[in-house]
Design a protein around this nucleic acid. Structure first.
Lengths: 166, 166
DNA sequence: AATATTAGTGGGTCCGCACCCACTGTAGGG
DNA sequence: CCCTACAGTGGGTGCGGACCCACTAATATT
């Protein structure tokens, strides 16, 4: 594609493929931030196609993995603001992906459970997430992906997560 | 501090250390997003202590690594909006970290160059970034960090970055 | 019974990031 | 000389995420 020879115009600096500064690329921190943001963005895109956000998936996953939760416990597990959780649960319930029932022993509590539709949805979302993953991790072979996953997991466990987010 | 014995309340679900759903933890995408966000956040914090943002560092790094740029080239290299770049350059110039001079051949262009103060600042910012890195990658030993860095770099190169950000 | 505490909800705010448009000055091509 | 194209700037918008407060209903405490 390069129709013209290099021809270094002396003091024209970047030109063909403007690369990022090595000072940044040397920082794993930076790469993590950047890649993470991309991953998050693409995932969010894919979920948005179904009218959902990352939290919706997180909540469904928590319910599917651990069974019904009092909303309060979901809040704690996922580290979200109670108020925001209420809203998410609200939407999910409206769409029929979860069921909310008043706890009969403590009627303040709302127990949230995933429905069959919800489970099916989660499966689909998971598939989408894996599609994104294939896209992002394209340069790595299967072995390398496993290594990466393992390292990331260890790093993640070491994080004393201060605040929420998913 | 636990004054009472375990006493498994039967259908009380999470309790002690509310873990995240495996469905999510199995996704490298998810881990990347989460860790990346944390890394970014902590880095931003550290830079904020000096009144700077990530972009400021990115610009300084680009200038230090590749020499003076026309602002236009910085925009292209870092994938930022021209308008936003103008603002960043403005602040950096006001603080004396970069120098802006009208290009004499094409007086539309503004050439941006890092000053000595700017270089010194960058060194300090880099140190801060590495401190954050040590914090985040604490669970990994030196070998593993290198592996991670290498994998991340490959992944990053494979990203067909659509839009800006740093 | 009176009071404090807890679960959930419904508003609304603040902030950062990406993005866009209208405008000025300069350059280049007919 | 005129008109188009381009570099840079200033101002402003839209969105999403985190956060917060005031309030109700129910429960626990004394």
């Amino acid at each position: 594609m390069a129709t013209e020879p290099p021809l270094p115009d002396l003091d024209r600096v970047p030109a063909p493929t403007p690369a990022l500064p090595p000072t940044l690329l040397d920082l794993s921190t930076f790469l993590l931030a950047r890649i993470g943001r991309t991953a998050r963005g693409r995932l969010a895109e894919r979920l948005a196609e179904r009218g959902l956000r990352l939290w919706d998936m997180a909540v469904l996953a928590a319910l599917a993995d651990f069974g019904p939760h009092a909303q309060r416990d979901l809040v704690q597990r996922l580290g979200v603001d109670p108020s925001d959780m209420a809203k998410v649960a609200d939407q999910l319930a409206a769409a029929g992906y979860v069921e909310r029932t008043r706890d009969q022993v403590d009627r303040r509590r709302v127990s949230v459970a995933v429905t069959d539709t919800g489970r099916a949805l989660l499966a689909e979302l998971d598939a989408r997430a894996r599609a994104v993953q294939d896209e992002v991790l394209a340069p790595l072979d299967e072995r390398e992906r496993q290594v990466l996953q393992e390292l990331l997991l260890r790093v993640h466990q070491g994080l004393g997560e201060r605040r929420g987010s998913v």
